[in-house]
Design a protein around this nucleic acid. Sequence first.
DNA 1: ATCCCTGCAAAATATTTGCACTGAT
DNA 2: ATCAGTGCAAATATTTTGCAGGGAT
Lengths: 164, 164
Amino acid sequence: MSVPGRPAQQAPADIDEVMELVRHEGGRASTARRVILEALVAAGGHRTAEELAADIHSGHPEIHQTTVYRNLERFEDLGVAYHTHLGHGPAQWHLTGSRHQHLVCQYCGAVIEADPDILAGLETTLHDRSGFELDLRHFAITGTCQSCASEAREHPISDPSVPA
Amino acid sequence: MSVPGRPAQQAPADIDEVMELVRHEGGRASTARRVILEALVAAGGHRTAEELAADIHSGHPEIHQTTVYRNLERFEDLGVAYHTHLGHGPAQWHLTGSRHQHLVCQYCGAVIEADPDILAGLETTLHDRSGFELDLRHFAITGTCQSCASEAREHPISDPSVPA
DNA sequence: ATCCCTGCAAAATATTTGCACTGAT
DNA sequence: ATCAGTGCAAATATTTTGCAGGGAT
């Protein structure tokens, strides 16, 4: 795996720009690379590597899952994409441009997209107290959603992990 | 996997109390169960299932990894223990009693244990805005530690995931 | 011509499940 | 005597790696 591109880069919204960036970093503008990127843009986030491979498969059955993994990692190195863990399932991939915070309910698995501003206070507190620079993209924020909180005491459920 | 015991239960600090709880819930006070719990107490948190199995192995070579997994899950259901993901490696297990927040540096992998009070503000904000009840035990809070933040721009490193 | 990238196969990691037997109640 | 728990083997899920051939520069 890789760690997010740093410093936090602007996501080139345009596919050609990304391919340009890839070339600038010594990479090659392969077909697979472009197709995978297109799939990610088209999906608009919240896609697993496997889902992306499936999306791609109709048009390009020769593109293997491995290649999807390798390219997503590359995009992450370039700061163009990142992955998030919402639960125990596979990682979810996003373009860096669509930044949002995930709240995941541990009981029903609901994924709520929160305004990243919600974290502003925490970010400041942490930085002041310890110099730690928060980046909550990598893991979701878990907790209990409103409806589960109310009916919580009665019937525990088994693992929702990640919803469909 | 399972979801934390709910409502958040007091962790019985005492092993006999936990075994009592297990029996009360229809479970049996097996030797393996007790030994695994003892290992968890002795380790004082931050142990993976595999590490716990290793800890146990000298005294009880017959206790299999599978049994460790199964019992940890059971303890989690009972609200006695919980697991946390600090990175891409295996989950870390803790007793519910030793509650603390993990900050993990994405670059060097350092794990900082933060005062859970740091999150008080965020907790309130979230609850007020969306009724979401925060529980940040399940995933670590990722970011960049102070020293990595300073030397950050120069040399990206590969995946630290979880430190030794 | 170089060497990055790909497809395919296989491995690696972390965890879960099936099943017959043992052991706690 | 019952039925939960265990050991062991095998399966599962997700991701990574090795290698030889193909394609971008």
